[in-house]
Simulated assay, not measured.
Amino acid sequence: MSLTFTLDPAVTPDLRDGVLDLWADVTNAGGAVGFVPPVTRDAIRPELVRHLAAMAEGRMRLLTGHDAQGRVAATAFFGFNTHRLMTHWVWLYTVMVHPGHQGKGYGRDLLAAAEESARTFDGIEAVHLTCRSGLGLERFYGSCGYKEVGRVPGALRVAPGDDRDDVSMLLTLT
């Protein structure tokens, strides 16, 4: 069974809690979503609040994937550029699929839904994301149509002595 995707879902306590649970579960399973394990919902909450505030201000949009039980099982946040020379592309942040659903093609489904959503945004010609090296994410995003367009060696320190490259990937929509 596949996920049901919704762009701009109503921000309810259930959605907020579902995203917090997803973010913590993905991080604690070793996912590269801005934190390193172990992490708690309380540590993630301030970042989610920033995302929700940006959504309320129209600077960010949320795509969610719900499983058959109605739980938040996947997310991707779109961040809109405010610089006048960069308004033709969006950022894709916090791309996550719950560890219990990985290996089912849901990551590919999430990225296809994100591409489909981005194509509905006025004037958007590309989607840009960054990922952490060392996890095979470049290959995965590449298999979904993204091209590596830049790399900053050692930009991400996930632990003492464990620096990773910050890899920029781009999906052209036009």
Rank of each mutant, 00 (worst) to 15 (best):
C144Y: 08
L129K: 07
V158A: 05
G154A: 01
P160F: 04
R139F: 13
I124L: 09
A126Y: 03
L137Y: 11
G142A: 15
P160C: 00
S143V: 08
V127K: 02
G123R: 07
S133T: 10
G123Y: 07
G150E: 03
E115Q: 07
G154L: 07
G154W: 08
Y141F: 15
S133F: 14
L135D: 12
H128T: 08
L135K: 12
R119D: 01
K147T: 11
G145P: 12
E125C: 02
D122V: 08
R157I: 14
L156C: 12
T130A: 12
I124W: 05
F140N: 08
S117M: 08
G142R: 14
T120F: 01
L135T: 11
A118P: 02
G136V: 13
E148M: 11
G123H: 07
E116K: 10
R132F: 05
I124S: 01
V127M: 05
E148S: 14
G142T: 15
P153L: 10
S117P: 05
R132H: 14
P153W: 10
L156K: 03
C131S: 10
E138T: 00
A118I: 02
T130K: 13
G123L: 03
R119V: 00
V127R: 05
E148F: 10
S143K: 10
I124N: 05
A159Y: 05
A159V: 04
K147Q: 11
A155R: 13
C131W: 04
E115D: 09
S117H: 01
S143H: 13
L129N: 04
G150D: 15
A159L: 04
T130H: 04
A118R: 02
L137V: 02
L137T: 03
C131I: 04
E116V: 07
